[in-house]
Design a protein around this nucleic acid. Structure first.
Lengths: 195, 195
DNA sequence: ACAACATACGGAACACTGTTCCGGATGCCT
DNA sequence: AGGCATCCGGAACAGTGTTCCGTATGTTGT
């Protein structure tokens, strides 16, 4: 059979086989390393685990943020897509918001150091920052709008601020048994309610 | 006149004059450097600004936390002491708590990177962590107890968690105009109220 | 004032990590 | 197989924290 992708549209002639292989090896190695040592694991460790040189990492993922995004893209997408579903499903908008935020918290607290990286002002994390915001702020905004329209919550909070706040509350969760990020997020959401 | 400190009690024969001079120079230089470049400013910069070698920093302040604590000790003490005063002054316990937390937030958001350092799990910051907690948790606890006793707030929050949460919310404040840490802290406190 | 000792200083040296760069190897197309 | 574009590996460089020890300085006793 002829090649799937019809002609006339391929200025990008598909990468070399070894390049694709290495990219996959790096993604797998990075995913494992992130779990084992957090998203701040040294570049050399990832390279070693993937069996490639450090140059290869930088070629495929110019910044650490690119690598992190590549590793977690699926989960972030899933989270973003869950927003509208929750809103459409039964329950009040505030309940949907709470459930959605909870998904976000679940995601963050299981990713060692990710919340801190999100907050970092290091230039290498700009892309990470941007991706999360681009993808999640509109979803959060939609949920907030619905809850405000339903008269359930105060109108003086924006999606950006809320997400940053929740992200911040998740920093360090998982490395301190005495710190309950989820509880604090609940408190924050509760503070949003009109009374 | 005889020496001020009476005999019989001085196992510590007072440091050398140059040592005292350097310690002060270091404190001044560090304070200035923290303001200019945050608490993560390179050790060498502080040493240069103080006109000493890096070895001298480590001799006087073995960890960065020691230096940070030394620089901010007065302000932290002032914050701790303000707790009982606020409680004794007029107003409800919840109002006192809110005002006190606000002092804490004021302190943190004006110290570039301090909130993040507080949250860091780097061993070098253990002492910082410990000092803040030792000094402020009891005060916060007292305020929380009073507010709970007055029936103003939920009882399911502990001082440690609240302080960590507030500290976390302050991370990055001051380096992002779109992020309003104070507002989020207000929301959190509002979520604490019984309704 | 001077000597002798304890203390403190300076900065070179090392360790660790991120990042760049290029000679050489490898896959791909003809 | 030949030839070229692409990609790889890892040495090399840069920035930062930390240690260490020969040297300088202050202090004390005479």
């Amino acid at each position: 059979m002829a090649d799937i992708e019809s002609a006339a549209e391929r200025p990008v002639p598909r990468k070399r086989a070894d390049a694709r292989r290495n990219e996959k090896a790096l993604l797998d190695a990075a995913a494992a390393a992130f779990v084992a040592s957090g998203v701040d694991v040294p570049v050399r460790d990832i390279a070693a685990k993937a069996g490639v040189g450090v140059g290869t990492i930088y070629r495929h993922f110019p910044t650490r943020a690119d690598l992190i995004v590549a590793v977690y893209r699926h989960q972030i997408e899933a989270c973003a897509e869950a927003g509208p579903s929750l809103l459409a499903g039964g329950g009040t908008p505030h309940a949907a918001l709470a459930r959605w935020i909870n998904l976000f918290v679940d995601f963050l607290i299981t990713k060692h150091g990710l919340a801190a990286a999100l907050r970092s002002d290091d230039a290498a994390f700009q892309a990470l920052h941007a991706y999360f915001l681009d993808r999640l702020v509109p979803v959060c905004d939609q949920l907030l709008d619905a809850a405000v329209a339903a008269g359930e919550i105060r109108a003086d909070i924006d999606a950006y601020g809320l997400l940053r706040g929740v992200g911040n509350l998740c920093i360090g969760a998982g490395s301190d048994p005495r710190y309950d990020a989820r509880h604090l997020v609940e408190l924050l959401l509760s503070g949003l309610r009109l009374r």
